[in-house]
Design a protein around this nucleic acid. Structure first.
Lengths: 158, 158
DNA sequence: TTTAATAGTTAATATAATTAACTAATTTTC
DNA sequence: GAAAATTAGTTAATTATATTAACTATTAAA
């Protein structure tokens, strides 16, 4: 018999929320013909200021594949695959970095920029719906706490 | 240029926390030779009272595959595959329901019960670490809010 | 200047998940 | 009560997702 624990309930709660998000929220993403991962990559390249990774680390230059791998928690090889699909779709371009010739900077094509801005209203509406019934203060508090939890998880080198 | 939005930051925050959880938290799960999905199934069958799905719906009888599919947000066919691996590992057993002969009830073997209870201390320690620095009140509030968000996502039939 | 580390790719493979078609059993509807 | 619809689970084929290991090229560190 497993006992009830506040901490366990919270972590399983976060996990389930994420599952439901990707399996339902994706409507506006699916409509655009994108997988969840592809969408996440695109908003990284669009420098969406809501992305935790971009909140934590400043980014002046365009992103590179290894940073995406870090943020998404997958291997670089996997990112290579994902990017090749996005390049086939003419949504992403690679540009060689002159300062460090190992690096390829990733940028969105005009087509992708347009796509993202057209998706924006639906995305905003959907996200607002998912936080229906919350006060501004509650939202602000929640954001602080979820960031703290993520930081704890990242810091835990056990 | 995508604008900063509290709602978007929160949802991306939840998503990232879940990613980091499954790609790091899994230490005690990996040690047991289980995938994340396999582990989640086992705690469902163990009736872990911290599982959102079991918090929402009462379950007197042992679970069945289609309930797992619902809770995990995957197809029944996928659950069939996952279960067959767990049965090969002698961790899960199927028992036919006498009242409704379409149904197969899923139960843990003694081996699985033992495994889960042996994993319990490490699991609790890990979960507590991830909520380090939170007061009890903060945890309680957070739990309420994450449950509310999940409910919003589920209810959203858009 | 050798050695080590980093960035990205490739090929082979493994894992995870889906769709579609199917059987069997139960429920609903007329 | 019989036909139609729904539900539970499985199977087979396929697709999507991700990994590991080996490799090239480049840069940084010793």
């Amino acid at each position: 018999m497993i006992e009830k624990r506040l901490e366990t309930s919270i972590l399983l709660g976060i996990y389930e929320a994420a599952i439901k998000l990707v399996s339902k929220n994706v409507e506006f993403v699916q409509k655009a013909g994108l997988s969840n991962q592809q969408w996440i990559i695109l908003i990284h390249l669009a420098k969406d200021p809501n992305l935790p990774y971009l909140i934590r680390e400043k980014h002046d230059k365009p992103m590179m594949a290894s940073e995406l791998a870090l943020s998404l928690g997958v291997t670089r090889a996997n990112i290579t695959n994902l990017l090749s699909v996005l390049m086939d779709k003419k949504l992403v371009k690679q540009i060689e970095d002159k300062d460090d010739r190992r690096i390829k900077r990733l940028t969105l094509t005009p087509k992708a920029e347009k796509m993202i801005s057209e998706m924006s209203p639906e995305r905003m509406k959907s996200n607002e719906m998912h936080l229906k019934g919350f006060t501004k203060v509650e939202k602000e508090q929640f954001l602080v706490l979820i960031q703290k939890i993520t930081q704890n998880i990242i810091n835990d080198k056990s």
